[in-house]
Nucleic acid binder design. Structure first.
Lengths: 209, 209
DNA sequence: TAAATAATTAACCATATGGTTAAACTATGC
DNA sequence: GCATAGTTTAACCATATGGTTAATTATTTA
């Protein structure tokens, strides 16, 4: 029952450590020494497993970009959900994801703005196919009786409403909740139903034009 | 007609250069040499005018934080605007601001996440008074027949919808617009009316519950 | 078990970077 | 014209940082 190989364990220790450090500090702010310390290993070992900081970073980034992207296909294609339920599911799952990974939004936004070409570079590997996604949105637009343009705005609005509360946490918490973490967390929990309600009301409200 | 003093000019040249570099690259990514080059001066001169990178950065950040914060008081307190018009004004002005300063949202979000305490530290100097702001929102909530909780969500939702399209530009442009800058810009312009409409529909839609 | 291979470390290296110094240059006041 | 204070520069410094090397210690394999 002796552990045969430590290497595999070391690799995942490195990945865990790198993830924690990179997500909080970004590529520019992270130090290889810091990651080594966090993983409890020698700095040279980092370069033994991942040749360079860049390589290690991209390994982490690819994975986190995949997490970041909402997996719309299963929800939107479901036949036994009303449009309203699809929206509720989406919002709830997406906000829950960020409650579990609160630093993910700020991390991804920071890195794609540092180097925008990284998006095109990794979008495929992150399991996103823009064309298929746009087709999907087109179908959903029809279902909701929206133009594709309106659908794109709707999508961006929903995603914004889910992501910004996390990416803007320091500001929101300070300005709206007097730096009270508990109040801010309560706000996040309410938000799952609030955003869905808000969107659904808006779609209904169009009828009142 | 000879220029009497160059000094003042030098200082503003430095500030302009620092602003450009810091906003695009952040504190961690920016290099003092780069800022000096951008300003067309010697690196030592940077330290002559602003003792350290940190000091120079904070000078820029303070100013940009002030820009970033929506100036709600004049709009929300106006007596001759309907709530609907207040929302329309706010959204249009806020999005227009970011069309002029497209890197501002990503910059502020990056830096407040790098060092959250910077918000509390500079919120006063940026001309924001959280208490007064919350009072203002309370009044507006009454005007709209909303609870304070709903008002906070509404506020965050509107701000999210304005900011995220800029902070998330690399992703949105790539995924939704196949990397076409023109399409993305058109989207931003539509967005001014779309977001306002969306919010107003939602408030009306509540009646259809 | 001995050779071969993989994992790990301490010490090192080259370069980049924020920051300093001392000297030179410029304008201004007397 | 000269002294003084303010401005600008080239050269320099200490340190941090990503990365490498060579030796050491497991682990595998024949």
């Amino acid at each position: 029952m002796k552990p045969k190989k430590i290497e595999k364990d070391t690799e995942s220790r490195i990945l865990d450590a790198a993830k924690r450090i990179f997500i909080r500090k970004g590529l520019d702010g992270a130090r290889m020494q810091e990651i080594a310390d966090e993983a409890g290993i020698n700095k040279a070992l980092l370069h033994y497993y991942f040749r360079s900081k860049e390589k290690l970073f991209l390994t982490i980034f690819r994975e986190e970009l995949r997490n970041f992207f909402p997996r719309l296909f299963p929800v939107l294609l479901s036949k036994d959900l009303t449009p309203e339920m699809k929206i509720r599911h989406f919002v709830e799952n997406y906000i829950d994801l960020f409650i579990k990974e609160p630093f993910l939004p700020a991390f991804v936004l920071r890195e794609v703005n540092r180097n925008p070409s990284i998006v095109a570079q990794f979008i495929g590997e992150a399991g996103i196919e823009p064309e298929k996604l746009r087709n999907l949105l087109d179908v959903f637009a029809t279902e909701l009786n929206l133009t594709m343009n309106e659908m794109l705005h709707l999508m961006v609005t929903i995603v914004s409403a889910c992501i910004f509360p996390f990416a803007g946490k320091p500001i929101i918490k300070q300005v709206l909740f007097d730096d009270n973490e508990g109040d801010y967390q309560k706000f996040l929990n309410h938000r799952k139903t609030y955003v869905a309600d808000f969107v659904i009301h808006s779609l209904k409200g169009r009828l009142l034009k």
